[in-house]
Design a binder for these strands. Structure first.
Lengths: 334, 334
DNA sequence: CTGAAAGCGCTAACAA
DNA sequence: TTGTTAGCGCTTTCAG
C-alpha cells in the first residue's frame, strides 16, 4: 500500500513492478516467467509463480503489445455475422486462434463500402497481428492503407489475381457455370433466386452466361431469408408456370423454395429441382435433402489462423493464392 | 527519413511525432485535434488535419489505450457463435458499439467451464472497457477476477440475484412453467426435446415440475440441430405413440420435428403441437409457422452497448438487474 | 489555446 | 540465468 505521490495516477491494478517487489526479483524476470519460462531457473520461476498467484496479477496486454509490437489480436471483417454463410469460418478462425493464444475482433460492414473504410482504419489503429477480410477488398483507399500498415492480410471467400497479401477462396464464376451445367440436366426452364451482394452477382452472371442468358432471374437484397425464398418461388411461377429447376444463392432461400413448393403441392424433385449454396450445415437433414454447393468454410478459418500465427500456410506451400475449390453435393432435391 | 540511431528499433509506422514535426506543432496538439477538436483553434486544426492526411497517420490505439486506460474495446463471451441463439444479440451489440467508436472482441467457451477461466484472463489482460457475458458467470475464480478488474460487466440471457455488475435477461424458470401451462391446453401427452446446456436445463426442470414430472424428456447435447430434432421426435414416438405436444429448446430442434412429422404424415397442429425457443428469426416463415418463445435478443445487445458506452442504462433507470421478460408467440404449429 | 514534462505497464537490447 | 536501461506511442498534468 505505497502512498507515494505520483504526478499521474496509476490504475490501481497490480503491475509487474508489484509482483517483482514481492518476489524479490526484477520486472523483466517476471516478464520472462510469463513469456519464455524455459530461460528462467526453476527455483526463480516457482517463487515468481507464487507471487503472481498471491497478487492475482493479470498482465496488461496493451502495454505488452505496445512494447513488443505484437498484439496477439486478429481482426475479422464480415458483411454481417448473422447470415449463416461466414459463420463456420469465423467460428473455426476463433477456435484455431484461441488455441494459439490469440483473440478475434469482429467488425461488420453491413455490405456498406463506406463503413468498410472507417472500419479498416479503426482496425489498423489497434495494430492487430493479422486482418481477415471476407471477400476481396475493393476500395483503393483501404487497399493502400492495408498495404502500408504491413499487417498480414487474408482475403477469403473469393479469389483474385492481385491479393493484398494472401487470398483463400474459390471461383464464384466457376460456381455459376458449373451449377448451370448441373441444372441443365435437371430441367428445361431454369431460374435463379439470388442475393445482390457482389459475390452472388458474379455467380449469377456466369450462371446466366452459361445458360445463354435464358434463365429467369429474381434478385433479393440481403439478408437472404426463408421468406425471400418463398416469395421468390411465387414470382418465378408467376413468370413461368413451367419452371422446373432453380439455383438459390443461399440455402436459406432454397429452404424457402422447398417450403413454398410443399405448400403449393409441387413435387420435388420430380416437378422442380432445387439447389442452394454454401451456408446451412443442415441441408442434408431437410426433407427432401437439399442439394447444395459445398464450400469448406471451416478450412478457410483454419488456414487463415495458420497463416496469422505461423506466418505461412505450410500445407499449401506458403502459396499466396489458394484455390480451395467447391463441390456440388447432389441430394434428393435435384 | 531520419536516420537517427536508436537503441531500440521503432516500428517504422508514422507516429504522432512525425505528424507534429510536419505540422510544426507539438504532439499533444495533434492528439487534441483527434480527440477533442473543439479545444483547438480552427487554423491549427486545419494545418494538423492536412499533415495527418499527408502522412497517412493512423493513431496507435494500443498506445492511446495504455496512456488513457480507455481501450474502446468490449469483449463478448459466448458458448459458440455458430448457434443462432446469441447471434442477433452479438450483431446488435457490434453495431451499437461501432456507432460509438467501440470494437467488439469475441471469445468462445464451447460450453466448457475450464476454457471460460482462461478466456476471462486473456480478456481482462486486454483491459477492455466492458465485458459481455452470455449467461451468468459461475466459476468463483472468474467472478473474483472480474470483480477485481473493475471492468463493467453485463451478464445476459439469464437472471440472477447477485450479478457481478449488471444483468440483462429473463427467467428461464418462468419460461419452463409458462410453456408447460401453454402446452397443457394443446395436448395430453407432452414431451420435451432439450439441449443440455445450463439454461436449457433450468427451463426443462421447471417445465417438468409444472407438468408434475410427467413429460417425456429427450436430452440433446449441443449444438441442437435439425437432425437432433428429427431424431428426437422418432424417439418420442417410440416411447409414446400418442405424444401430441412438444416443447423444443431451440427452433432448430423444432424445425427438425416439423420436418420429421411431415415425413411421417403426422398432421400439425391437429395431431401434434410444436413450440420452439428463441433462436430463428424466420420461424414465422416455416410451414406450418412455428410457435416459439420470443426473446428480444437485439434489445439485449443494444442495452448492453448503452451501458458500456455511457455507464448506465437510462431507459431502465440504471437498474442493475433488468428483466426483459419473454412472450409466447402462438402460431400455426400449436 | 498550446506546450513541456512525466509516465501508462511492458519488453528489446545489451551487459553482467 | 538475471538485471539495467531505454524506450514503444500516446495522454495526463500542470504551466504558460
Amino acid at each position: 500500500m505505497s502512498d507515494i505521490k505520483r504526478s499521474r495516477k496509476s490504475t490501481g491494478q497490480v503491475t509487474l513492478t508489484d509482483v517483482a517487489k514481492l518476489a524479490g526479483v526484477s520486472t523483466i524476470t517476471i516478464s520472462r516467467v510469463l513469456n519464455t519460462p524455459e530461460v528462467v531457473a526453476e527455483e526463480t520461476r516457482l517463487a515468481v509463480q507464487k507471487a503472481i498467484n498471491q497478487t492475482g496479477y493479470v498482465p496488461n496486454l496493451l502495454a505488452g503489445g505496445l512494447a513488443s509490437t505484437k498484439s496477439r489480436l486478429i481482426a475479422a471483417v464480415v458483411p454481417t455475422i448473422s447470415g449463416p454463410v461466414f459463420l463456420e469460418t469465423i467460428q473455426s478462425l476463433t477456435e484455431s486462434l484461441a488455441s494459439a493464444g490469440y483473440q478475434l475482433m469482429i467488425g461488420q460492414t453491413g455490405y456498406d463500402q463506406e463503413r468498410e473504410e472507417d472500419l479498416i482504419s479503426a482496425i489498423i489503429g489497434r495494430r492487430p497481428d493479422g486482418i481477415f477480410l471476407t471477400g476481396v477488398m475493393h476500395s483503393a483507399e483501404s487497399r493502400k492503407r492495408l498495404i502500408a500498415s504491413g499487417i498480414p492480410v487474408v482475403e477469403a471467400w473469393d479469389l483474385t489475381d492481385k491479393p493484398i497479401d494472401t487470398v483463400i477462396g474459390f471461383s464464384h464464376k466457376a460456381v455459376g457455370s458449373e451449377v448451370a451445367e448441373f441444372l441443365k440436366k435437371k430441367g428445361k426452364n431454369i431460374g435463379i433466386i439470388t442475393g445482390t451482394d457482389e459475390r452472388a452477382q458474379i455467380r449469377r452472371d456466369s450462371f446466366c452466361k452459361a445458360l445463354c442468358g435464358k434463365p429467369l432471374v429474381i434478385n433479393v437484397s440481403p439478408p437472404t431469408t426463408i421468406e425471400a425464398g418463398r416469395d421468390g418461388l411465387r414470382q418465378l411461377l408467376k413468370a413461368d408456370k413451367k419452371i422446373d429447376a432453380i439455383f438459390c444463392s443461399s440455402d436459406m432461400l432454397a429452404l424457402g423454395v422447398l417450403i413454398e413448393a410443399q405448400v403449393k403441392g409441387i413435387k420435388i424433385p420430380s416437378e422442380l429441382s432445387v439447389i442452394g449454396f454454401a451456408d446451412l450445415g443442415s441441408s442434408r437433414d431437410l426433407e427432401p435433402a437439399l442439394s447444395s454447393v459445398h464450400i469448406d468454410g471451416m478450412l478457410i478459418g483454419r488456414l487463415a489462423a495458420e497463416y496469422f500465427t505461423t506466418g505461412a500456410i505450410a500445407s499449401k506451400d506458403s502459396a499466396k493464392i489458394i484455390d480451395l475449390g467447391f463441390s456440388i453435393t447432389s441430394r434428393a432435391s435435384t
